[in-house]
Design a protein around this nucleic acid. Structure first.
Length: 811
RNA sequence: GGGCCCGUGGUCUAGUGGCUAUGACGUCGCUCUCACACAGCGGAGGUCUCCAGUUCGAAUCUGGACGGGCCCACCA
């Protein structure tokens, strides 16, 4: 079968994607006896569409899986979506024009279920359109009933271990969105503000304190100075009267106070910032909340009650001025934490939260990190840096709507926790009945449900469990767990990767995977991070439209593992050119293979031995690179060999033999055998990276003789030392070198490359080395006669060959 | 402030001790040679960020400086 003149990438990609699904090329066989290779990829959050970073990261993981499949492993390659939590809520609110806070919880959850399910179908199509090869039988959603059950089971087991506990803790709250938010949802924003020097009284003397948040005076619970600060030693143990307020607060020491800032004295309010939260805990300070959940001043603030934060700030400044307690005002510009979504300054409020106790396990987690094999190696340092910096237990409750409910009720009287029974999971305490009618502690019949849901990481940290059916299918789980490979971006080492290790340790006392492959970010052409506000977002669908999936993958394969990758359109163009070149070279090769009967000829031409010998090194290097997850190196090696050695040199060198009149001439058959073998194996080596075109060419010609239903389940080429031929390799390299030299000679004289050479005189000492290559050398350089003697004129740089070139007359 | 990574022709990049530093894009010249002009052949273009050290020898190792990136901490 002949290939069409032009490769229609779009049609081909669609066609083979459908084929792979239909033929179940990626199906995992649970009954397998083969070695299992399993992958745990990040379940994308449901944002409505795949972004370019996804496309690159998932392609990179896919390269490895396609390679392992060809090597002969049984592939366990699940694919999931993380529908829990904020991103989904945001997506739904935006898409449907609703607000979670203004809806009934049930209705909102129902809407989220419908919308995320729909969005996931679309996203899945996008992910498949770049040629990923997961087994869709292994698809999961983190909001699925079975996943909810698993997540709640994990919660209960952790509780049984004595590691789940509930306590009052300050949480980050967005007054605008009326919701608790996580630290990762914070953003720095620069504000111009005012440093207000206000007067606290200690006895009759003045103590000046600088603050940007005078409205928090009603919440003031202490003032601090640095124990090393000699100016304030005499204040120890004394109390300060808070201006405008009717109370005094203790003066305390803390090393965290910056002596150089303001007057070196700072007031602590519950709560102005993270440090206040810390001091509140550390110094056991009382709680005085001045700000309510809707961002207004609380009843307790007396005359300021009901004002917004800004109004209160102005009012208090005015009152301070009127009382002569405002000494000075200095404008300053500082960074404040705002909610990334609405840009509102966040507040801290206190409520009861669920925690997982794990600070005592830090050493264990470090040890686990050491056991994991990191690719690249240095990414381990980031993990360790994070683990060693942990200061708090893991807060897993969220005051949100769309997530896995915390499976607990409480006694309204004594606050006893009533945990759901394991065999009833999943449950929603707001809907389902508690397992007991009355409180086991105090006997009260008044039982209230928990409203909070779990942090999305509490569930998505279970992805290996989810995919391998932990506590569901123990036989399968034992086979799969621990996984072979985890792939994720370096930005979520401290979240997803770390949390997964935590859960895996708690439940199974094992590392969840053997290897971790960490990929970089996609940046814009200038090397900057993409963001909506900068307007420099590259949409994968545009890339796919303008180019194609294989080109996108080709570009994705060009980044070294762990390194960031800048989007350069020219790299996509390069990918397209490569596809064209591969197509054309194959077209040429297959044209000459139509009458090839198969089988290795007894006598191989030296040029063919040269080619096959050189190709062994390519197999070796490419395989080694894939084993180390170095797909960029694998790509480079094959790309370079294919384009330059195979096309530019080898195909040119065998043309004369291919066009021989006598089709059965052994020299021709030797060349046919060689292209059959080398091209097939080049296709295999490139198949993990460019699955569509490799399949297309394979199916057009090789499938009928190779018997594998798809190139992606064909066997990976194996390095064969017996095919290494030192003599042929030397001779071939020498000839290539001479050809280059002669091409240069002609090029410098503006001559056509087919311009004839009468006599080519080559230094005698090379006669033996190029024995058998003379005809090839003559044909490739349009030389009539080669003689060996003592020439003077040209010498090649690499081998020191000396040649004379006597041109035809009149050329 | 702490940790990690990076700094190679105009642009991107390979190379982790050794002959005249790899390749791609761009650029210039030639060639429409029977797979491919989305090509081929050839040319020009680099004090390998800087300084000091180790070494017979450093882009490569060590120390420092400068510049860029990411994560964390801080932000009264």
């Amino acid at each position: 079968m002949e290939l069409d003149k032009h490769y229609d990438a779009k049609a081909s990609e669609k066609k083979w994607q459908d084929f792979w699904l239909k033929e179940k090329i990626y199906a995992f066989n649970p009954a397998t006896r083969k070695k299992i290779f399993s992958l745990d990829t990040p379940p994308p959050t449901v944002s409505g569409s795949m972004h370019i970073g996804h496309a690159v990261a998932y392609s990179q993981a896919d390269f490895i899986m396609r390679y392992r499949r060809m090597v002969g492993d049984e592939i366990f390659y699940p694919f999931g979506f993380d529908d829990n939590g904020l991103p989904s809520e945001r997506y739904v609110e935006k898409k449907c024009g609703v607000k979670a806070t203004k809806m009934k919880r049930d209705e909102f959850r129902k809407l989220c279920m419908e919308q995320t399910a729909e969005a996931e179908e679309n996203m899945l199509k996008q992910f498949l359109s770049i040629g990923l090869s997961p087994d869709l039988q292994l698809r999961y959603r983190t909001i699925d009933k079975r996943v909810q059950r698993m997540s709640q089971l994990s919660f209960i087991e952790i509780h049984e271990m004595g590691r789940g506990y509930r306590k009052e803790a300050p949480i980050i709250w967005c007054p605008e969105c009326q919701t608790a938010i996580a630290q990762v949802e914070l953003k720095d924003k620069q504000f111009s503000s005012m440093f207000n020097d206000i007067v606290f009284k200690v006895g009759s003397s003045n103590l000046i304190i600088s603050t940007t948040r005078p409205e928090l005076l009603p919440s003031c619970v202490a003032v601090f100075y640095n124990p090393a600060d000699e100016r304030y030693q005499q204040l120890k143990g004394k109390e300060a009267k808070v201006p405008l307020m009717d109370f005094k607060v203790p003066i305390l020491e803390d090393a965290k106070v910056d002596m150089t800032k303001g007057t070196g004295i700072v007031m602590c309010c519950t709560f102005g910032d993270q440090t206040d939260v810390e001091w509140y805990g550390k110094h056991k300070l009382p709680l005085k909340m001045s700000i309510t959940k809707d961002g207004k001043m609380a009843e307790s603030t007396g005359k300021y009650a009901g004002l917004t934060i800004k109004e209160a700030r102005t009012a208090i400044i005015e009152d301070l001025k009127a009382s002569g307690l405002l000494k000075d005002q200095n404008p300053l510009s500082h960074f404040v934490n705002v909610h990334e979504r609405c840009g509102t300054e966040v507040e801290f409020i206190v409520s009861k939260q669920w925690f997982v106790k794990y600070l005592d396990l830090v050493d264990k987690f470090v040890e686990m990190g050491n056991k994991l094999k990191w690719y690249p190696d240095h990414m381990k340092a980031r993990y360790e840096n994070w683990v060693k910096g942990l200061r708090w237990d893991w807060c897993i409750s969220r005051q949100r709507y769309f997530g896995v409910p915390i499976p607990v009720w409480y006694c309204a009287k004594c606050d006893a926790e009533i945990i759901a029974s394991k065999d009833k999971l999943p449950i929603d305490p707001l809907v389902d009945k508690p397992p007991v009618k009355q409180c086991p502690k105090c006997g009260s019949t008044e039982i209230v449900p928990e409203k909070d849901v779990m942090d999305t990481w509490a569930t998505s940290s279970l992805t290996p469990f989810i995919a391998a059916k932990w506590r569901e299918d123990e036989k399968l789980f034992d086979k799969i767990f621990p996984f072979s490979l985890r792939s994720n971006g370096h930005d979520i080492i401290s979240f997803w990767l770390f949390n997964t290790i935590v859960k895996s340790w708690l439940h199974e006392k094992k590392l969840p995977w053997k290897d971790a492959m960490i990929n970089g970010f996609v940046l814009d052409p200038h090397g900057e991070k993409m963001s909506k506000s900068k307007g420099n977002i590259i949409l994968p669908e545009n890339v796919l439209n303008q180019f194609c999936a294989d080109a996108l993958r080709f570009w994705s394969a060009s980044s070294k593992l762990g390194e960031d990758l800048a989007y350069q359109e020219k790299d996509l163009v390069t990918g397209m050119k490569f596809l064209t070149k591969l197509w054309n070279a194959s077209r040429f090769a297959l044209m000459h293979l139509e009458d090839f009967k198969g089988g290795k000829p007894r006598k191989m031409h030296p040029v063919d031995l040269w080619m096959i010998s050189k190709f062994q090194d390519v197999i070796k290097e490419s395989t080694a690179a894939f084993e180390d997850y170095e797909f960029s190196k694998a790509k480079q090696v094959v790309e370079n060999f294919f384009w330059h050695t195979f096309c530019d040199n080898y195909l040119e060198m065998i043309k004369a033999r291919l066009y021989l009149e006598d089709k059965a001439n052994p020299e021709r058959v030797s060349a046919q055998y060689t292209i059959y073998y080398v091209l097939l194996n080049i296709l295999k080596l490139i198949a993990p990276l460019l699955p569509h075109i490799a399949e297309d060419i394979y199916q057009s010609f090789y499938a009928k003789s190779e018997n594998d239903k798809s190139i992606h389940i064909a066997s990976w080429p194996i390095y064969n030392a017996e095919l290494k031929d030192a003599a042929a390799q030397k001779g071939g390299d020498l000839v290539v070198d001479m050809v280059t030299r002669i091409r240069k000679f002609k090029s410098m004289r503006d001559m056509s490359l087919k311009a004839g050479i009468d006599v080519l005189t080559i230094e005698k000492k090379f006669e033996k080395a190029i024995e058998g290559f003379e005809d090839t050398l003559r044909a490739t350089t349009a030389t009539s006669r080669i003689v060996f003697g003592s020439p003077m004129e040209l010498s090649t740089e690499e081998f020191g060959v000396k040649m004379d070139i006597a041109l035809h007359e009149g050329v």
